[in-house]
């Protein structure tokens, strides 16, 4: 039997490519100065889904919420093996915090419908909150298992996962459907595949087609609108039209979306510089080691 997997992904600024221009004067991220990439741990979530498909069959659907250029990671997902990719994009979703984002994504997952496993990366490298996955599970009303390091077994609608809890691991069993967040030691993401690259490099969402064809001109001009429609139909016939859902498409309640749905307020931003605080020596003896361990426990470094 197969399992239908839905992978929630995010396009993020590449924080490894940080330069002096990475921060605006007001302390927020200057997204234009950083290349946009597939959030690294989301690639591990996608790989886990593809491995489930390879072994058991089923489908892999990838959803991302973001501006139209987030289609770049959807094309990447197609090239690595996704069956279906959906862009959730709507101006009214701008400024969503994790609560609003997880609400919108859960609406999109509901619209996809017949799913067994929802997979997310543990966290995104821009916000590092690790909240969207768990919150989406709550909103979908399904169990969640975070920090998947190994999928131990999957059968009879039950899944067993080894989750990494930092200083050890737990084996957790859940019934399906379930939401899982994946960490980077879970697997090695496969490369995009050559033939899929050759095909899916041409995939576009209608909103991209509109921009490419209309350019600076008025997209409502009948001649241009016709061209856009024609191109979209062509793409659709070839399976290359990336689905684009707005908030109405996914029946989202607008009061839970965007700024209105986001209780998070940035109160203050503080630059923290970590400094070394000198060092302490211990005798290389039984007593010395005991003393060291004791101190580490007291400081909650271990234990």
């Amino acid at each position: 039997m197969g399992y239908n997997c839905v992978v929630l992904t995010k396009q993020v600024p590449d924080t490894k490519a940080v330069t002096a221009k990475a921060m605006k004067d007001d302390g927020t991220v200057n997204r234009a100065a950083l290349p946009a990439i597939f959030n690294p741990e989301d690639l591990h979530a996608l790989e886990e889904a593809l491995m489930i498909k390879d072994q058991y069959g089923g489908t892999v659907t990838v959803i991302t919420m973001g501006p139209p250029n987030a289609c770049n990671i959807l094309r990447d997902a197609y090239e690595r093996g996704a069956d279906r990719c959906i862009l959730v994009s709507d101006r009214r979703a701008a400024a969503s915090d994790t609560l609003a984002t997880s609400y919108i994504l859960s609406c999109a997952v509901r619209k996809v419908g017949d799913f067994d496993i929802v997979l997310c990366g543990r966290q995104a490298i821009d916000g590092d909150t690790a909240q969207v996955g768990p919150q989406a599970a709550e909103k979908l009303g399904i169990p969640q298992i975070t920090y998947l390091e190994e999928l131990v077994s999957l059968n009879n609608n039950h899944i067993v996962v080894r989750r990494n809890v930092g200083n050890g691991w737990e084996l957790v069993q859940s019934k399906l459907p379930v939401l899982i967040t994946v960490i980077d030691s879970a697997n090695v993401p496969r490369s995009p595949a050559a033939k899929r690259i050759m095909k899916y490099k041409k995939a576009r969402a209608a909103i991209e087609v509109k921009k490419e064809i209309a350019g600076e001109n008025n997209a409502d001009d009948p001649e241009i609108a016709k061209q856009i429609e024609q191109k979209c139909n062509e793409l659709k016939a070839k399976g290359l039209l990336i689905e684009h859902w707005n908030l109405d498409d996914i029946d989202a309640d607008l009061q839970w979306c965007g700024r209105d749905g986001s209780p998070t307020k940035v109160h203050r931003i503080q630059a923290v510089v970590l400094k070394g605080e000198g060092h302490k020596q211990f005798e290389p003896s039984e007593d010395g080691v005991r003393e060291l361990v004791h101190e580490l426990i007291e400081e909650h470094t271990i234990g």
């Binding site: 490369s191 995009p192 690259i197 050759m198 490099k201």
Partner: peptide, 16 residues
């Protein structure tokens, strides 16, 4: 296509 395929192989070779 040639450029994209080589770029993919280039990354696979260097990273993996």
């Amino acid at each position: 296509n040639y450029r994209r395929i080589l770029t993919m192989i280039g990354e696979l070779s260097a990273e993996f």
